[in-house]
Nucleic acid binder design. Structure first.
Lengths: 193, 193
DNA sequence: CCTAAGTGATACAGTTCGGTATATTTATAG
DNA sequence: CTATAAATATACCGAACTGTATCACTTAGG
C-alpha cells in the first residue's frame, strides 16, 4: 500500500486553520480549498468533521510534546533551574520563529473552550493533551532532582497555562516573565524544603 | 420613555447560552427562543450578533468585577493573606452555588479563543476585561500593604488564569489548590523583601 | 379615541454549513 | 497494457445561519 500522504495533507491544512481561526469558525470547504484537496479525499479518511478535529488535536499534541520535551532536555541551565526552560520555550514560541508556527494560544485550551461539554470526545482529547504535558513536566522535574515532583509540576503547569492564556489575550510575552519569575522562586523554595 | 427591560432580557439569555456553549456554537434563534423573545426585538436594540456579543461581554465583565471585588474586600483572612481570597472565590465559583451561575471557564478567555484576531472588537473587549480584573487585583494588593503591587498582581493574575483554565479543562477545582499554594508562598516571600 | 412605539409570531432571502453522490481523471501494481 | 484503487471536480441535499420584512396585537400618552 502506498503511503497515503493525502491524509496528512488534510490534517496539516486543518491544524493550520483551526489554530489560526478556531474550530467552529473554519468550515471544511476552506480546509480543502486552501490545501488544494477534494472533498471526497477528506471523507475517505475521516468519518466527520469531528474525526478530523480529533486527528488534528492528536497531531498537534505529538508536535507540542516533542517540542517542549526537547527544549526541557536540551536546556543549558544549571540542573535546578532546568524546568525554567519551559518558560524560555514558551517565550520563544510566542516570538514566532519556531517550527510550531505562529503563536495563537494553546490549541487544546481553545478546543476545550469551544467544546465545553466534559463528555465531548474533543474536550476529552484536549484534557488528555494537558495531562500528557503535565507528565512530561513531572519527568523533567524529577530529572532535575526534585522530590514531590507531582506537586511541583502541578504548580508549574498552572503558571505555564496562565502565561499562555494571558499572552494570547494581550498579544504579548510579558505574562511569561511573571510566570518565570514565580517559577524560579518556587524552585528555590523547593530546594530548601 | 419606559425602561426597555426587553433589552436586558436579550442580553441575559445571550450571556447564559454563550457561557454554556460558546459564541459560534449558539445561534441567534436559540437565544431568542429560549428567552421567549422575538427577532425584531433583538435587532431593534443591536445592529448585529457581534454587537450582542459585545454587550454580553460587557454585562459579564461588570458582574465578574463586582463579584471578585466584593470577595476580596469582604475576606476575613489576615491582611497579608487577603489576596488569597481570589482563589477561595474561584474555588467557590467552580463549586457552582454562586450568583455567577455554573462554572464554564472564563468567558473572556473563551471569547479571545474564538475570535483570535487581536484587532477584532470582541477580542479587544476580552483583553480589556482582563485588564480591568488586573487593576482590581492591584488595588487589593496595595490595600493589603504590599509594595510593587503591579508586579505582584501580575504574578497573581497568571496563577488565577492558569487555575481557571485547567479547572475548566479537567472539570476539577484541584488546580486552584496548586495556584493558591504558590500564591501564598509568593506573598510570604514578598513580605520578606 | 387616536396615534405611535414596542413586541410576538412568522415567513423569507441569501449564504454557508456538514455531508453525499457521481462521474472523470490520475497513479500504482501486476 | 490492464486492472484497481485513490484523488479530483462538481453538483447536490437538507439544515442552520444572520439578517430583513410583514402583520397583528398590546400598551401608553395626549
Amino acid at each position: 500500500m502506498p503511503r497515503p500522504s493525502r491524509r496528512d495533507d488534510v490534517v496539516d491544512s486543518a491544524v493550520k486553520l483551526f489554530a489560526e481561526e478556531g474550530f467552529h469558525a473554519v468550515g471544511i470547504d476552506r480546509i480543502l480549498s486552501e490545501g488544494g484537496l477534494a472533498k471526497m479525499t477528506l471523507y475517505r479518511h475521516f468519518d466527520s468533521k469531528q474525526a478530523l478535529i480529533l486527528a488534528s488535536l492528536d497531531a498537534r499534541n505529538r508536535q507540542i510534546l516533542a517540542w517542549f520535551g526537547r527544549k526541557l532536555a536540551e536546556s543549558n541551565l544549571p540542573p535546578p533551574d532546568r524546568p525554567l526552560a519551559l518558560f524560555d520555550a514558551l517565550e520563544e514560541w510566542i516570538g514566532g520563529e519556531t517550527e510550531l508556527g505562529p503563536f495563537n494560544g494553546c490549541m487544546f485550551v481553545r478546543a476545550a473552550g469551544e467544546f465545553p461539554d466534559l463528555a465531548d470526545p474533543i474536550h476529552k482529547a484536549a484534557a488528555e493533551a494537558k495531562e500528557n504535558l503535565r507528565a512530561t513536566i513531572v519527568s523533567a522535574v524529577e530529572l532535575a532532582g526534585y522530590l514531590e515532583a507531582e506537586d511541583l509540576a502541578g504548580e508549574l503547569m498552572v503558571l505555564k497555562e496562565g502565561a499562555t492564556v494571558l499572552a494570547q489575550i494581550h498579544g504579548s510575552a510579558e505574562p511569561v516573565q511573571h510566570a518565570r519569575r514565580t517559577a524560579r522562586a518556587r524552585l528555590r523554595a523547593w530546594l530548601r524544603a
